[in-house]
Structures are given as structure tokens and as C-alpha cells.
């Protein structure tokens, strides 16, 4: 693959270039700002562009946006220190092929390039569980539930009706009902009357 690499940090740029070349790819261009990168991409359309997020002039996302708008064939991979879902979500709007955290570049970048060669996309796995602190005091069974689901089952244990729960959590009754169904599914509770209530009273401890 013909690859362009852009990073305003010379040390990182150098590291990335040698790492990519070691994997047998050809680095056709390495530059230190977004503008130069965009120019090269528009002129030569390399197969892949590995872009840093924070760069002077144009940043990585802006370059991705331009490429996306120009319907260029060059695939974009963002390589960044930002471990932010929001950034990733934004970047995904511009159809990027990869999102790699710099501190996890080894071996994530290698995996990413392989996936892209196979026509797939790759986003760092460490992104999603980033916020989660150590699992709380809750039992193992509950760890499969989301926060909302956990809150709801806790409230069910205090014998609150769906309506009361909805009011307490600022949700609609319908949403609460939806969550109840999910909880029953996730915990494998038999679909009997009051089964969830009984389960909750028995298993949730105050």
C-alpha cells in the first residue's frame, strides 16, 4: 500500500514511518501539517493516510472531512493521543477506516493495516471501556447490565411500579418497560408474572 503519514510531532512521525515501513508498506509522503497532507492526497491519491488529530493549519478531522467531501479513494486512519468516544463518533461521520490511540499503536496499528488490506475498518478496542473504573460492588450477575438497567432493577427491588420508576429516573414509562424486557432477557429470568420483582427482591441487596 502507498501510505501518507502526517504528524506535527517529529519524533512520533519518524517512529510511525519506520514502523509502517517495517511492515512492508511504502510511505510515499510524510509531512508535519494537515495542509500539506491534503494537497498531496488530492494530487496523488495514496491508498492510505495516517493522520494525527492535532496539527497546525488543518487538523486530522478536517482533512478527513475534505477527503470525504471530495469523494477521494484515499482511506483515512486517525492516529491520536485522544481517547475520546465523541471524537471517534465525529470522525466516523467522515467514513474513516481506523482510529488508533498512540499509546496503544503497538500493536494496534499493525492490526489496523491488516484489516484495511482486507477491506475492513479498525477502531482501537481500548476506547470503549476507557471510562469504566473498576467494577463496583455489584455482583457479577449484574455486570452484564447497563447503568440504566441496574438502576431500574434496584428500584424494582424497592417495589416501585414502572410509572414510579419512570418518574424517578426522568424516563418515559415505555422506556422503563423496554429496559425491563432487556433485563429479563439478559438475566435469563423466566417469563412469569412478577418473576423479575421476585428475582430483584431476592438478589439486590441494599
Amino acid at each position: 500500500m502507498k501510505i501518507l503519514i502526517a504528524d506535527d510531532h517529529p519524533l512520533t512521525l519518524q517512529g510511525t514511518v519506520s514502523y509502517v515501513e517495517k511492515m512492508g508498506h511504502k510511505v510515499v509522503c510524510s509531512c508535519s501539517n494537515g495542509k500539506a497532507a491534503l494537497n498531496y492526497i488530492q494530487l496523488h491519491t495514496p491508498d492510505l493516510a495516517i493522520l494525527d488529530l492535532n496539527m497546525p493549519g488543518l487538523d486530522g478531522i478536517e482533512v478527513a472531512q475534505k477527503i470525504f467531501e471530495n469523494k477521494s479513494q484515499t482511506k483515512i486512519v486517525l492516529l491520536t493521543m485522544h481517547n475520546e468516544i465523541s471524537v471517534l463518533n465525529k470522525a466516523k461521520e467522515y467514513n474513516i477506516y481506523g482510529y488508533i490511540l498512540k499509546d496503544k499503536a503497538f500493536p494496534d496499528l499493525e492490526n489496523c493495516l491488516k484489516e484495511i488490506e482486507n477491506g475492513k475498518k479498525y477502531f482501537s478496542t481500548s476506547m470503549h471501556n476507557n471510562f469504566k473504573l473498576d467494577p463496583t460492588a455489584s455482583s457479577d450477575v449484574l455486570s452484564s447490565l447497563t447503568l440504566s438497567e441496574r438502576k431500574i432493577i434496584e428500584l424494582i427491588a424497592t417495589q416501585k411500579t414502572s410509572k414510579q420508576i419512570a418518574e424517578l429516573l426522568f424516563l418515559s414509562e415505555k422506556t422503563v418497560e423496554g429496559h425491563r424486557t432487556k433485563i429479563i432477557e439478559k438475566l435469563g429470568i423466566p417469563k412469569e408474572k412478577n418473576a423479575l420483582l421476585i428475582w430483584a427482591i431476592q438478589n439486590i441487596k441494599k
Binding site: I61, V87, K132, L147, K151
Partner: peptide, 29 residues
């Protein structure tokens, strides 16, 4: 907030809410 100008208010807030929910186990609709 990271890249706030790029990402916008709603996305940033959503991420903020998610982070608070995860860190404090506190539900925010």
C-alpha cells in the same frame, strides 16, 4: 473538553454524561 469546537455541544454533552454515569454510577437522562 477535547476538540469541543469540532465536535459541538450535544456530542460533548453526551460524552460528558456518559463519563459521569460511568464514574459515579449516577443516571442522567
Amino acid at each position: 473538553p477535547v476538540l469541543f469546537e469540532k465536535i459541538g455541544l450535544v456530542n460533548s454533552l453526551e460524552q460528558f454524561i456518559e463519563r459521569i454515569e460511568n464514574t459515579h454510577q449516577f443516571m442522567i437522562s
